[in-house]
Design a protein around this nucleic acid. Structure first.
Lengths: 152, 152
DNA sequence: CCAATATATGTCATTCGATGACATATATAT
DNA sequence: ATATATATGTCATCGAATGACATATATTGG
């Protein structure tokens, strides 16, 4: 087998393969995220609300403080308040007073929310089986070209 | 009025690991995407604009029709028009008339855009090396359960 | 124990990008 | 040559996030 000159210019500019790999990875991500939006939308929620329900579901006691939900969802606390408002408004979650700190609120899912989450989670699991090969392949390609950026 | 079954019932009951896996994957995704927003923002653009430049960069001739950009970015054509407006406004891309079809517009990057993209791509490549293990691990965990529904 | 400060949640105005509805220019087909 | 399809563009509107601010409760230091 012939050795292709696959190395070269590693300190001057990014290899074409790096752009291809990054672009392919983001494309796969956009497609998966778009599926998530469509699946959630068909169930009457947003992808964000689905993700919030996932976060609640896997949190200890299946309950989460708004502050903690904000951390998980990478939102400001007041953004998490409004996200919970929407979940509650849709009948998917409810607020419970914390027994230990009366400032805080525990968000738990309703039965309706739990049922919706289960269906959406199953759909996502199934869909991921389609995207997983491309995502994994993209990650593998990118891993092989790790390099430092342009040092200032 | 009874609601028709809006979705498939992929499996009867999801394993706890399925929720953990899906939640972990989405969490890893949110963190990577948040990095992308911050990195792009530090460079004066949005993550969306960075992705658009990536799409242009890897397209044949490093030029792309707005229609095709819309397909790649999963936007409506008029949304892509406005995205290109913002890229052009920031001096990162420019419009060129197509030689074969006078309806269409070819979007190409300026030198400034190409330079910005290279820095951002290098940053993303480096950052991905941090996220890759968790993302790959999440995908591996999920792949093992999309088969029959559960197996610890 | 009280005052000062920190923390958790909540409200509201504003902002930003995507969409739908629609308009215009050009290409293609009958 | 006309009808229709395609590509781009404009504009009003919407939804969700943020910053500034408000209120309630907890915690800490004197």
């Amino acid at each position: 087998m012939t050795d292709p000159p696959a190395f070269s210019e590693s300190s001057r500019s990014l290899d074409e393969n790096a752009y291809q790999g990054l672009a392919g990875f983001r494309s796969a991500l956009r497609r998966f995220l778009a599926f998530s939006e469509v699946a959630a939308s068909a169930a009457g929620v947003t992808s964000q609300q689905y993700q919030a329900m996932l976060a609640i579901r896997v949190h200890p006691d299946r309950a989460i403080m708004i502050k903690e939900l904000a951390l998980q969802m990478l939102l400001q606390p007041n953004g998490a308040v409004q996200l919970v408002d929407r979940l509650v408004g849709a009948g998917l979650a409810e607020r419970r007073q914390s027994s230990t700190d009366r400032r805080s609120v525990l968000v738990v899912m309703t039965d309706k929310g739990a049922a919706l989450l289960e269906r959406l989670a199953a759909d996502h699991l199934q869909e991921l089986s389609k995207h997983e090969p491309l995502l994994a392949e993209s990650l593998r390609r990118l891993r092989s070209m790790e390099r430092s950026g342009d040092a200032p």
